[in-house]
């Protein structure tokens, strides 16, 4: 074993192979746990969306599709830089690992900045659930679907459920992004110290798995929350 290896192999493992297997398997079980965690929310969304299809579509049309699309692009790009960081960590290329990690973190922060502007917009328009929640169905839509005044009132109430789910889902996703950025910064230290190599790169690999998972959640959130509204406005 080369120098420096002994500090990265924990004493209760017999070999790097065993340590890597344990570490990856642990991460996959953790991700399974995450799937179930978000799964509860997605279930609630699916049930309400099935019961209130048109109402949800109308509420969805108040989301900012260009910003959502921008964030989707940012996250896909960050997944690429993350994958490169993992590859470089296997190859023990210290500077490249650090560089790709920094790029990933910049993109992650970029996502959060865009999200901040989106949330600010919601607060301005009072589409944040709670006592000051306000939602008005556009007159064109009322005419298009020939909605009775009572139907409009229920539609405005269902919109509050939609926005509750929107904030819950995107909020938890953003929280995962914040935690991800935190872990990424923490990984910079061993990366700069050149600790990662063929035998010991599981921290970067596991961080990569986590990052891709969080991206993947967004890939589901974007169409479910943002693109749903297009239908209603197109009359479909």
């Amino acid at each position: 074993m080369a120098n420096g290896h002994s500090t990265t192999l924990h004493h209760h493992f017999e070999s790097y192979d065993q340590q890597r297997n344990a570490s990856s398997l642990g991460m996959w079980f953790f991700l399974a746990q995450e799937v179930m965690f978000f799964g509860g929310l997605f279930t609630a969304y699916m049930i309400y969306r099935t019961q209130n299809g048109l109402d949800f579509a109308v509420a969805s049309s108040h989301l900012n599709i260009p910003l959502g699309a921008l964030n989707t692009a940012i996250l896909i790009a960050s997944s690429f830089t993350m994958a490169m960081a993992v590859k470089k960590s296997v190859l023990a290329q210290r500077k490249a690992i650090v560089g790709y990690l920094i790029l990933t973190l910049i993109l992650g922060c970029g996502f959060l900045v865009v999200k901040y502007f989106e949330y600010a917009e919601k607060f301005e328009h009072n589409t944040v659930p709670g006592s000051s929640f306000e939602f008005h169905v556009e007159p064109e839509l009322i005419a298009q679907y020939d909605l009775s005044p009572e139907r409009v009132v229920t539609m405005e109430k269902r919109a509050e459920i939609f926005f509750s789910l929107y904030f819950m889902m995107t909020g938890l996703h953003a929280l995962h992004m914040v935690i991800g950025v935190g872990i990424g910064i923490w990984l910079m230290f061993p990366a700069m110290a050149g600790k990662f190599n063929m035998d010991y790169h599981n921290p970067v690999e596991n961080f990569g798995l986590y990052w891709h998972f969080v991206d993947l959640v967004w890939i589901f959130l974007f169409p479910l929350l943002y693109l749903l509204g297009g239908n209603a406005l197109a009359g479909g």
């Binding site: 746990q33 179930m36 965690f37 509860g40 929310l41 709670g130 006592s131 459920i161 509750s164 819950m168």
Partner: peptide, 23 residues
């Protein structure tokens, strides 16, 4: 596989109680 589901469920109920979300 089970525990995260009750976690998110209580989180939704809690958000309803504290933040006024309406799930």
């Amino acid at each position: 596989l089970g525990t995260p589901v009750v976690a998110i469920t209580l989180l939704m109920a809690g958000a309803e109680r504290v933040l006024g979300l309406g799930i």
